[in-house]
Design a protein around this nucleic acid. Structure first.
Lengths: 121, 121
DNA sequence: TAAGGTAGTTACTTTAAAGTGCGTACTAGA
DNA sequence: TCTAGTACGCACTTTAAAGTAACTACCTTA
């Protein structure tokens, strides 16, 4: 029997980690192919991208559609449930943006490269 | 120069990881001593707890108040900024609760031990 | 006087997550 | 014909986060 003390533990298991929130963020702007996702996510390896996508699929947030053709073509999109998870991603994005602004005002040498990935968050 | 592509990256740096969201969650219910926090957080070691608290303090979410006495007494509380971060923790908690409910209905053998930690989330 | 509680620090080890590099089977284009 | 792109799988290595254990210095209570 698996036990949780707080709801947040389940959330972190599902969308925690280094990449999943970003992937959800990107898929919010529409269906994407594997290579497209990889080009947009700076620094992710193909192995890890696919691994994360499979986990998101297993957890019901992402749908995987395989075209039976050569060369291979696979498309990923958010399920309805995935869209509910995006609510979390949104708050995290906007809080993060405010955090960055604040730190800039305090003189820290940081930037948010807006528009480069989703153009939104 | 530190660069971010998405706001969420900053958020994850600050409240990501295994324990920080839980600590914020607990501190929402009021000022706590170190040992009190450790008793409430199942499985955290003293080293990691203190380390996480110091990082949260450095990031301006947590206030540390040291009583000049023997034996030592230290109290931790959320700053105003820490309270804004709690908004995120709240959505993550409620989404997680829903997720757990859903999985229970699907027959998974899991429980959310409510009331054991904060009695709230 | 010996144990237990307080809030740490330090050094070392373990583990999970992520990264790297290779191979596959096929196609389109130069 | 050679190269590049597509979406993987597999084996191995690296790294960051977390865990473990021991030590400090003082007080209270049994």
């Amino acid at each position: 029997m698996k036990q949780y003390n707080l709801g947040i533990e389940a959330t972190l298991e599902i969308i925690g980690g280094k990449w999943k929130a970003l992937i959800i963020c990107l898929l919010m702007s529409g269906v994407k192919r594997t290579s497209e996702l990889q080009r947009h996510i700076d620094g992710i390896s193909q192995k890890v991208l696919i691994q994360q996508l499979r986990e998101l699929e297993k957890d019901g947030l992402v749908r995987r559609y395989v075209f039976q053709q050569m060369p291979p073509k696979v498309e990923y999109s958010l399920t309805e449930y995935g869209v509910t998870a995006n609510k979390i991603v949104e708050v995290m994005c906007s809080w993060g943006k405010e955090n960055i602004k604040m730190r800039q005002q305090q003189g820290e040498d940081i930037v948010l490269l807006e528009g480069t990935v989703t153009g939104e968050f």
